[in-house]
Write a protein that binds this DNA or RNA. Structure first.
Lengths: 328, 328
DNA sequence: CTGAAAGCGCTAACAC
DNA sequence: GTGTTAGCGCTTTCAG
C-alpha cells in the first residue's frame, strides 16, 4: 500500500541506497551490470523518486510561482501558457495564483508559495504594491515582472508609451482630431495609469484634442447596456477587452465602427482578429515576452546577481477594421 | 544567509523544537506565555515554516495538478481561474500544465506531478488516453475530469447531447432544414466526437438534413483566408472559438449572419456576448463545474472511495444575434 | 566503483 | 504543558 522507496529498490537489487541514487541521477559512473539490475528493480517495483525528499535535502525546488491578474483574459491565458511551456522545457513546474488584482489574494498566495519554497516568482501583472518588492527582497526570492515594468524587479514588457503613441499617430493620420481614452475594470491599475499618461503625451505630440476619458463598465455592456462614450471620433482603449466592449457600446449608440468612430485596442489578443470586428490594436510580442521573462528569472534562480534588468520590447500596430478616416 | 529553521526559533525562545512546532500548528494547547515568546522569536527571525519538510514528514501535500488543453481559450482560462480560486480557499495550491492536447506533453508533466506527490489531479480536458486512467490507478492518485466525461474517472461536465440538441432544435424552430456541423483544431478530439455524434442524433430527431461536416482552419481565417463552409443555412460549431471563426469565414464568402446563415456555438465564453457578433451559443455552467469538480476531487483526496461519480450539468441555450429565420 | 553515515527541517508519538 | 526521540526519503561527502 505504501509507495516503494529507494531502500526497497536497493534491497531488491542487492546494492546500497547511494548506488541506487547514483543510477537514478546518472551521477558517478555506475558499472553497467549494477545499473541494469537497479533499473530492473525500479521497473518491477514501480518505483518513482520522491521529489519532496529530494527538494528537502537539496534545499531547493524546481517550482516557479506565477501571479496573474485574470486568467479569463486571453492575453494572460496565452502568456501563462507560453511561460509554462518554457518553464517546463527547462525542468520547472509552475504554480499559479489568479489574483484578480487583489492585494489580499496576492499576499495570501505568496505565503503559500514561500512556504513551498518556490525557486522564483513571476508576476504577470502585479498589484504594484511597493511592500511586495520589499517582502520578496527580505525573503530573497528571485522575481520577475512580465508584461509590465517595475524598477524594483527584473522586468520585461513593451514600450507602453511607444505603443500608445503608435495608436494615436494612426488615428491622427486618419484625420481624427478629437480623441478619448477609455479604460475599464478589466485593466490593471498601474497599466492603466501608464497608458493613460502616454495617451496624454501622444495627443500633444500629434496635435490632437483630448476629450474626457471614460471608464467603461464592460459587464454592463455584456449584460446589454449601452453606455455613452465621449464625443470623440477616435478612441484609444486601455486594452483589447475594453476595446471590444467599446466598439459594442458605440454600436448600440448608433455610432458604427469605423464610419462614425475609430477604435484602437492594446494587447493583440488573437481573438480580436476574428469576431466580426477586426480590431485595430497595438500588439505585444507575447512569445518573446514569455521567453525573456523566464530567462531573466532563471538567471536569478541560478544565482546571478547584479542590478535589475528592465527589458523593453517593441509593440506593433496591427491595423484592421475598427479604424477609418475621420472628420473629413 | 541561510533561512532560520524551527530550531533557531526554539533556541531564541528557550523552548524545544516541538513546542515551537506546536504553536505553529496551534496544536496541543501551549501556555500563553510560551506562545507569545515563540511568536516573538518567529517575528524577529522572520521565520517561515518549510512546507517541503512538513510535506515530507506528513507524507502528503496540499498541491493539486491541473491539466488544461489550451489556456489561450478563454473558456479554459476562466475554468482554471475558478478552479484555482476554490482550491486556494480550501488550502490547496495548484500546479498547471498546458498540454495542447498532446499526449506526450501530458505524460511528461504527469511525471513531474507525481514526483512532486500532488494530492490529486484535475483534467480539464484530457487526451482521453485509456493508458492515463490505468496509470493514475496504479499510482493511486485521485483524479477528476472537468468539463468532459469519462467513466473511468470522477467527472463533471454538461449534458453534451442535450446541449447540441438545444442548438439543433433552435435552428429547426427558426426554419432551418439543412444543417452542418463545423469543428476545428481548437476543439479537443473527444469533445468533438461526442458533439458531432450528438449532432447527428439531433438532426434526425428534429427532422433536419445533415450536410457535410467541415473542419475549419481557424488560424487560416485569422490570417485572412476565407474557406468555404458547406451549403447549409444552419451551423452548429463544436465550440465558441470555432463558431466565431466560422461567422467570419461565412462573412468573407458574402454569407452574412443571421440573414444568409445562422451559427450556434458551444461553451458560453463571456467575450462572445461582445465582439460585434453576439454569438448564439450553448453555455456551460462554468462556476458550478469548477466548484463541483473540486469537491469531487477533494473528497477522494480525503480518502473517500466508492464507484466513480459522473455528474452531469444542464447546458443553457443563449440566443443572441447569429441566428435568425431560415429557408422562409 | 560502491557502501556507510550524516543530515535536510519538520511532525508525531511518547515520556517527563 | 513541554522535551526527547525517531524518523519521512533522499543526497552527499567520505572511506573502502
Amino acid at each position: 500500500m505504501t509507495r516503494p522507496t529507494i531502500v526497497d529498490v536497493a534491497a531488491r537489487s542487492g546494492v546500497s541506497k547511494s548506488t541506487v541514487s547514483n543510477v537514478i541521477r546518472g551521477a558517478p559512473p555506475v558499472s553497467p551490470g549494477v545499473r541494469t539490475r537497479v533499473q530492473a528493480a525500479i521497473a518491477e517495483l514501480g518505483y518513482r523518486p520522491n521529489g519532496i525528499a529530494r527538494q528537502l535535502v537539496q534545499r531547493r525546488t524546481s517550482t516557479l510561482g506565477l501571479f496573474v491578474g485574470d486568467l479569463g483574459n486571453p492575453f494572460y491565458g496565452e502568456l501563462v501558457k507560453l511561460f509554462e511551456r518554457h518553464a517546463h522545457t527547462n525542468g520547472f513546474t509552475t504554480m499559479v495564483s489568479n489574483t484578480d488584482g487583489s492585494r489580499e489574494r496576492e499576499t495570501a498566495s505568496i505565503d503559500g508559495f514561500l512556504e513551498r519554497r518556490v525557486a522564483g516568482l513571476a508576476l504577470l501583472q502585479s498589484s504594484g504594491d511597493p511592500g511586495l518588492a520589499e517582502l520578496l527582497r527580505t525573503e530573497s526570492v528571485p522575481a520577475v515582472v512580465v508584461s509590465s515594468h517595475d524598477p524594483s524587479f527584473d522586468s520585461v514588457g513593451v514600450d507602453e508609451e511607444k505603443g500608445v503613441s503608435l495608436a494615436v499617430q494612426h488615428l491622427a493620420e486618419l484625420g481624427h482630431r478629437r480623441l478619448a481614452y477609455v479604460t475599464s475594470g478589466y485593466v490593471e491599475d498601474r497599466t492603466n495609469r501608464v497608458r493613460h499618461a502616454s495617451f496624454a503625451i501622444a495627443c500633444v505630440e500629434h496635435g490632437c484634442e483630448q476629450m474626457e476619458p471614460m471608464h467603461l463598465d464592460v459587464d454592463a455592456v455584456l449584460a446589454g447596456a449601452a453606455p455613452a462614450p465621449p464625443g470623440a471620433t477616435g478612441f484609444v482603449a486601455a486594452n483589447d477587452l475594453t476595446a471590444i466592449a467599446l466598439v459594442e457600446a458605440l454600436g448600440r449608440q448608433g455610432r458604427s465602427t469605423p464610419n462614425e468612430a475609430s477604435v484602437v485596442g492594446f494587447d493583440g489578443i488573437a481573438l480580436t482578429a476574428l469576431a466580426g470586428v477586426g480590431l485595430t490594436t497595438v500588439a505585444q510580442p507575447l512569445e518573446e515576452m514569455a521567453r525573456t521573462g523566464l530567462e531573466l528569472l532563471l538567471d536569478r534562480v541560478a544565482g546571478e546577481d547584479g542590478p535589475c534588468r528592465n527589458i523593453v520590447l517593441e509593440p506593433r500596430l496591427v491595423v484592421r477594421t475598427t479604424t477609418g478616416r475621420g472628420e473629413r
